[in-house]
Structure formats: C-alpha cells, structure tokens
Design a protein around this nucleic acid. Structure first.
Length: 151
DNA sequence: GCCAACGTTGGC
DNA sequence: GCCAACGTTGGC
C-alpha cells in the first residue's frame, strides 16, 4: 500500500472531523493543482495518509486517515455555489478529482513542522522544502516509519 | 498582516 | 514559447 501526506487547514477539515465520525468517509475535494491531482489519481483503497494541519496555531501532522475508493470527478468543480467551482472544467472530461477518506488514528501530540524539519530522513520530502506548496504528496516507506517513530 | 515563493494566465 | 502580471499558499 502506498503512503501519502495531505495538507488541510483545520478550520476547513481537521483530523477531529474524521475522528468525530470514524466510519463516515470525508470527500477530499478542492485540490486545484495538477501535480497534487495526479497524486490523488494514483491513490488506491487502503492507502494511508498523514493529515497535516497548515495555516493554523499548531502546524504539523495530526494523525492518519486512509483511502476508501479510487479517485472520481470532484463534484465541487461543477457546483456553482462551491468555492471550488471551476467554470473551465469540461463536463465531458472533468479536470479535477476527489477521493474519499476515513479516520484511522489521531496522534496524542501533533508532530510539529519543526520536528519534521529536524528529521534527516525527511530531507527530500516536499513538505519540508522551502517554498513548497504541494498539498498532496507521496511518502516513502522510510519516511513514513521515520515520522511514526519521530526519528 | 506581511511577504517570499510558487503556479497559472494571457498578451505578444 | 516567452515572460510579466496576477492570485494563492502558507510560515512567520
């Protein structure tokens, strides 16, 4: 199973939103970057994802969720009332994708960005690189283990 | 709120 | 295809 990391602003969707209804999938919508979208399309049911809280008080990885279905057209791109509406997305060939995710676990303490930056094993992870804005990214098995064990 | 870094757009 | 202008991201 592949591993991933996805960023979210907790005011929009946090690990607590997943934990509140552990059996109810949340639609991961609104990705509007092609590289991130392509990673969404590579996801398979059962893949695990670190949930990273950005633009907030406690920045860092807050827990783990997992993918429950393959990518499908993001409904928000055709919803004129959505902030994620994209009038230029062709209905016959939807530009943007979404996947459904469910709760796996919440960390007792957030693994902070400072901690992540201090881990040698994560040096090549896009998340810790200066100026990186990629919101969905692959995580290698080695990186995953390093994060779980805080090495 | 600031601003550096980035991705996208659109004129040429 | 170039690249300036623009809007957005996201840490601080």
């Amino acid at each position: 199973m592949a591993k991933w990391l996805a960023k979210t602003e907790p005011s929009e969707c946090s690990i607590d939103d997943f934990a509140r209804h552990p059996d109810k999938p949340i639609v991961w919508e609104g990705v509007r970057n092609y590289q991130a979208r392509n990673f969404l399309r590579d996801m398979k049911a059962g893949d695990e994802i670190f949930i990273y809280h950005s633009s907030c008080i406690h920045i860092g990885i807050a827990g783990v969720v997992k993918v429950v279905c393959e990518a499908y057209p993001d409904p928000a791109q055709f919803d004129q009332k959505s902030a994620y509406y994209d009038p230029k997305s062709p209905p016959g060939n939807p530009r943007w994708s979404a996947v459904d995710m469910v709760f796996v676990s919440k960390f007792a303490n957030i693994i902070t960005l400072d901690q992540l930056k201090a881990m040698p094993a994560l040096a090549s992870l896009s998340l810790v690189q200066k100026g990186s804005r990629l919101s969905v990214m692959p995580v290698s098995d080695g990186e995953w283990e390093a994060i779980l064990t805080r090495i």
